[in-house]
Simulated assay, not measured.
Amino acid sequence: MDWLERMNRALEYIEDNLETEIDYKKIAQAATCSEYHFPRMFSALSGISLSEYIRRRRLTLAAFELQKSNIRILDLAIKYGYDSADSFSRAFQKTLGLKPSDARNKGTQLKAFPKISFQISIKGDTEMEYRIEDLDFELRIIGTGKPVKTSKAFKTIPTLWNNAKKDGYMQRLIDMSWENPKCTLESLLGVCGKEAAIMDEEFTYFMGIRYDGDVPSNMECITISHSTWAVIPNIVEAWKRLYSDWLPTSGYELANFPCIECYYPPKHKPRHELWVPVVPK
């Protein structure tokens, strides 16, 4: 399958650059994916974070070198991206369970974290709810956009909503929303960039609501003209399973429109959903 080939290309890039600086944007490009979405997809498929995988692979190679050469620990630290021998030693001991100096001893038992490769496996013991929504109108969303560094989006976006709650912006959106319901997409909305595949180092996270009235002076308006959406409940779980479970076998692929995080009003079930723009393959 094409998505497996792309994921394995990304892993080859990582493997080829363990001894040099790794560009996270190039990893995502190798997978023909966005820098924003790739870490989610990798974590969902592998069970560990991308940064932790790279750390484990580098320290595994470092352990091999300690046993077969007389390289200085400082030189080894610099080679694998650490600023000092102390920071390297701490990471080495935390990950492999012993000090780098002890790894030189013959007969010492070491841990090795092998290279990951993605293959097709038979799964399906956990069901995944979703539905397809077709919108026959243009989405007109008002709100404000916030710049988000792609590599830090997972931490930044929840903070943006927390701040919006504290400063009253969220309540202002709530007061304006749900006045003239037009579809099930009536909620607080987080529009992720300009398209589902975010390839830039920074994107705009647009926090707003669907609204047909006049645009307030301190807000902006964006429009999204796309009809077919895959809607998956539970935003956190949806991001985890979108690439690993749903997209590969769905018969759809991502459209060139942004994904939308939807946070519904009280008593709505589910509490939130991820709307993913799709087109048939």
Results as ranks from 00 to 15, higher is better:
M170C: 04
R131L: 10
D200H: 14
I14Y: 02
E21H: 06
K111R: 15
E186Y: 15
S151K: 14
V148Y: 05
E253V: 07
S43Q: 12
S227A: 08
F64H: 11
A255H: 10
D136E: 13
W246T: 02
W3V: 07
Q29I: 04
C192R: 03
C33L: 09
A77D: 05
N70A: 07
P39R: 10
L173H: 11
G124K: 09
N162S: 13
R140N: 09
P158I: 02
L254R: 07
K149N: 15
K155E: 13
K26W: 09
E179F: 12
H37N: 01
L160H: 05
K269T: 15
E220T: 14
G143I: 02
G190K: 04
Y36M: 12
Y263Q: 02
S87C: 02
E52W: 00
M219N: 10
G251P: 04
H268I: 03
I120M: 12
Q109S: 09
I71R: 08
N162T: 13
N17A: 12
T223H: 09
I54N: 08
V231Q: 09
I122G: 13
Y205Q: 04
V231P: 06
K152V: 09
I174F: 14
G193Y: 11
A10L: 10
K26N: 09
E273W: 00
M207G: 00
K165F: 06
I222N: 09
N218W: 08
D16N: 13
T204H: 03
F206L: 05
I14W: 05
I209H: 01
L66P: 06
I73N: 02
L160D: 01
